[in-house]
Design a protein around this nucleic acid. Structure first.
Length: 262
DNA sequence: CTAGGGTTAG
């Protein structure tokens, strides 16, 4: 990275994007401190520097688990009168979460809302992930209610349900599924799919039926999978009804089932 | 032709 510094020293003024690309490649090399130094030198030279540039380097520190450096750069950013955007917040939230400081991460996401910044689904993902990873499902549920009250995000329920599934909290996923999904959107269909492939057999039957009712149309593979698991659980009737329901839908039969029909 | 930064990964 020495060459870059020399170039800057000789009067080359990189623009915002160039600075960012340089910082990014330094961070990818595991050298966020170098990237930070680059930022400082650019500023000293009078180059314009951005929140985006700061985010990049903060992310770099987060990747290296250097939380102290990330936080101090966060402060520097305020000092330079660059107000963080929601992406910047998300970067730090993720870093805090990865370091196990879930409370701080949560607090920061609340602070972000107080600043009037709208969180994206991505903002909450790392937080939700960490709560699940630590098994703090109760707390997550409380948090979810809080998030919902702060502003509505269609995909928030989906996000939480899918995470719960991933970590095996099926009962909770199940009850949220009944509570949160009222639409027939693609994302809801995807969430149902995620649940169906791991969920509690009896309730996967219920969910499948709800999907039919809402026109979410579970596909054949999924129906087969669910009905197979129902069979294993001894629920012959439900397994049967599910496949029947699928066939009624006039969908294409798989090779296997064509065989069975003959 | 306002790009470039944020999720997941045992």
């Amino acid at each position: 990275m020495k060459p870059v510094r020399e170039v800057i020293g000789k009067g080359f003024f990189p623009n915002l994007v160039e600075i960012n690309l340089l910082a990014q490649s330094l961070c990818r090399d595991g050298q966020p401190h170098e990237a930070q130094q680059l930022l400082m030198e650019c500023m000293n030279k009078g180059c314009a520097v951005n929140v985006v540039n700061f985010s990049t380097v903060i992310h770099g520190f987060g990747q290296k688990d250097d939380l102290e450096a990330a936080l101090s750069l966060w402060d520097d950013m305020y000092f330079c009168n660059k107000d963080p955007g929601s992406v910047t917040y998300t970067t730090l939230i993720d870093a805090l979460g990865k370091a196990g400081r879930i409370e701080d991460a949560t607090e920061l996401s609340m602070k972000m809302l107080r600043q009037g910044l709208a969180p994206s689904p991505v903002t909450y993902r790392p937080v939700i992930h960490q709560y699940c990873r630590k098994g703090r499902v109760e707390d997550l549920m409380k948090l979810l209610k809080n998030m919902i009250s702060k502003g509505r995000f269609q995909t928030l329920f989906n996000l939480v349900i899918e995470k719960l599934c991933k970590f095996g909290y099926l009962k909770e996923a199940d009850s949220l599924l009944g509570e949160g999904l009222r639409t027939a959107s693609r994302t809801d269909a995807k969430t149902c799919h995620v649940y169906l492939s791991v969920g509690i057999p009896m309730s996967t039957y219920t969910v499948s039926c709800q999907m039919f009712n809402r026109n979410l149309l579970p596909d054949l593979l999924l129906c087969e999978k669910v009905s197979r698991r129902l069979l294993i659980g001894g629920k012959l009737e439900e397994a049967d009804r599910l496949v029947l329901r699928f066939v009624e839908r006039d969908c294409v039969l798989s090779q296997d089932q064509k065989h069975l029909q003959d």
